[in-house]
Simulated assay, not measured.
Amino acid sequence: MSKAEAIAQILKVFRQYGYEGTTLSRLSKATGLGKASLYHYFPNGKEEMAQAVLNFVDEWMKANIFVPLKGAGTPRDRLEKMSENVDRLYCGGEQTCILAVLSLGEAKDLFNIQIQQALKSWIDTLAEVLVEARIEPTLARQKAEDAIIQIQGSLVLARSMDDTAPFQRVLKRLPEMLLENGNG
């Protein structure tokens, strides 16, 4: 198993168990790698693994959220593409947000700055698209924040209620909600 493949499996464990609940035994079982092999890839242990997961998600978001939002097409087209990719990121609402998971407990102290930056970048990029759609900058920022709140809240609800319908509903309505009062 390559390091990249291991990170993808490690991500699943952190999403399911959080930072504190993720153990080397669970990571070993999920990756099929022995503890020695995990330490070969990640000499600093669980903290380095969580950092690798955050870096992986950060790169994924850059390629699949930020690039499409900054790309060609109308603001509506770009927001619809973002919604499609957010759906993929969270497996239709079946997966939790790793940023949310790693913003709790001990992990918050370790990764708070990186998580804040990821969310700020997402909000800023969304707001830029909305300003381009002729929405006043202050309102654009508020709408961008509200979009992240709706996405994250619907993920919590989907997981808690074991029903992805609220998440799907939010993503379906998101472009329209964001563009209200604009010309996008």
Rank of each mutant, 00 (worst) to 15 (best):
N85G: 09
L130W: 03
V156P: 00
Q9P: 06
D87S: 11
K3P: 06
T164S: 13
D77N: 08
G153A: 09
F14R: 09
L155G: 05
F14A: 10
E180G: 00
E59D: 14
L89R: 14
E106H: 10
L157F: 11
G92D: 12
A4M: 08
K46Y: 12
L27E: 06
Y41N: 04
C97P: 00
L24S: 05
T96Y: 05
L110N: 01
K172P: 01
I135H: 00
R141S: 00
G73R: 02
E94S: 14
R78W: 10
V101T: 15
K46D: 11
E136S: 10
E128I: 00
A30G: 10
F66D: 03
E132R: 07
Q114E: 15
N181H: 11
R78H: 10
I7F: 09
A63H: 05
V170C: 04
S28N: 07
H40P: 04
E106C: 07
D109S: 13
A72F: 01
A36G: 15
G71T: 04
E47Y: 07
T138F: 08
L119A: 01
R134G: 01
Y19F: 15
G182L: 10
L171V: 05
D109G: 15
A147H: 01
K108C: 07
M177E: 10
A147F: 01
E136N: 13
A165L: 15
N55I: 03
W122C: 03
L102W: 11
L179W: 04
L119D: 00
M177R: 03
M49S: 04
P68V: 08
S37I: 03
A165I: 14
A6V: 15
E106M: 11
F42G: 05
N55L: 10
E136T: 07
K35Y: 09
E59W: 02
Q95W: 12
Q114R: 15
S103D: 08
N183H: 03
S121F: 00
L11R: 11
Q150P: 00
V129Q: 00
L155W: 09
L126I: 06
A30Q: 12
E132P: 06
L139R: 11
G32Y: 09
A127C: 04
A165E: 14
G18F: 14
G73S: 04
L102Q: 12
E132A: 07
K29Q: 15
D87L: 11
A72I: 05
E20N: 07
T23H: 11
G73T: 07
L27R: 06
P68L: 04
L27S: 07
K108D: 12
E128T: 04
K120A: 09
V57N: 07
T138P: 00
M61G: 06
K70D: 06
I149L: 13
S154P: 11
I123H: 00
K143I: 02
W122E: 06
Y39H: 13
G71W: 04
R169A: 15
D124C: 01
T31K: 12
F66V: 09
V101E: 14
V131K: 08
W122K: 05
L27Y: 06
M49T: 09
G73A: 05
G105R: 08
K35E: 14
M1Y: 04
A52I: 05
F66G: 00
R78G: 08
K29R: 15
A127W: 01
V129F: 00
E136G: 04
S83E: 08
V13Q: 06
Q117Y: 09
M61S: 10
E80H: 07
R78Y: 11
C91K: 14
H40T: 13
D146T: 06
